[in-house]
Computed example of a mutant assay.
Amino acid sequence: MAATKAVETTEFTVISRRIKGWTPSVILDVGANVGQSALGFIKAYPQAMVHCFEPFPASYRKLLANTRGHDSIMAHQIGLGAKPALLQMSDSAISTQNRVLSDRDPETGIEVAIHQGAAVLKRLGLEHVSYLKIDTEGHDLEVLQGFAPSLGCIDFIQVEAGMNRYNTTHVPYQRLADFMNDHGFLLFYIFEQILEFKKAGRPVLRRANPVFINARLVDLEGIS
């Protein structure tokens, strides 16, 4: 899961400027790694409850250590996906690039438990989510699919998208956008635009973090 700045408030700053009175109360951090984003969320909004999901054992242990003393951060050692399963995940210590492995991947990994997002919301008794952040190194669409029955209760969703076709590590932006549009979300803003850095860099956009807004928060009447 790609690292996020220790204090990542840019997204919420932009949202609060556009939607007066919006304040996050429940935040889901899927692919929490060692708690970088969660600690930033809580620093910006100490009244919010943050649920962190991190299946990789070493990262989860570090997540618990880093968030100890923060009662408003809850850590869950599970992964999220389209349906319950046991999947192989790469084994690279606490790397932010640990990912779910495909059947074609020769790399060996460890087995992790995958749960469906909608079922997890029900189990936790969450009827409303202010912000869902997904950063799962190419597994983002499967995570979204697992939340499909409950997407209506979520205000904003952040994903990590591949922005050019050659990037096969991340889910192509268009696939994510089509899914979000089909489920009642509109593109809000594109954050963290990263140019290609491999082979000393290339002048193309490699990945970005698009954020989508639930259409129920948008009045488009009379706009064409």
Rank of each mutant, 00 (worst) to 15 (best):
L86H: 15
L64N: 12
Q88Y: 08
H70A: 03
S92P: 06
G69N: 00
I78G: 05
S95W: 02
G69E: 06
Q97H: 02
L80K: 02
I110Y: 11
R99Q: 11
T108W: 10
K62S: 11
Q77S: 05
S92C: 11
G79T: 03
A82R: 10
M74I: 13
T67N: 11
D105K: 07
H76R: 11
L63E: 07
P106E: 09
L87N: 07
K62P: 00
M74D: 09
R99W: 06
S92Y: 13
L86V: 08
H70L: 15
H70P: 02
N98Y: 12
G109F: 00
L101S: 09
K62G: 02
G109V: 03
A85S: 15
A75M: 10
R99L: 04
G109E: 02
A82Y: 00
R104P: 00
Q77Y: 02
A85G: 09
L80H: 03
L86E: 15
V100M: 12
A75W: 07
A65P: 01
L64C: 13
S72V: 04
G81M: 04
S102C: 00
G79V: 01
S90Y: 05
I94H: 05
R68P: 03
S72L: 10
L87P: 01
T96Q: 12
E107D: 10
A75G: 03
A93C: 13
G79H: 08
T67S: 14
M74N: 14
S92V: 11
S95N: 13
S102T: 14
L64Y: 11
H76A: 08
T108S: 11
P57E: 05
A58K: 04
S72F: 05
H70N: 11
K62Y: 05
Q88M: 02
D71E: 05
A75Y: 02
D71I: 02
S102I: 01
D103C: 10
Y60E: 04
V100Q: 06
R68H: 01
N66G: 12
M89N: 06
G109Y: 08
H76Q: 09
D71V: 06
I73N: 15
G81Q: 03
S72Q: 13
T67L: 07
N66M: 07
H70C: 13
L86P: 01
A58E: 12
R99D: 08
H76G: 05
L101E: 06
N98A: 01
A93R: 14
A58P: 00
G109W: 15
I73C: 07
Q97W: 01
T108I: 07
Q77I: 08
G81T: 04
Q88E: 13
L86M: 06
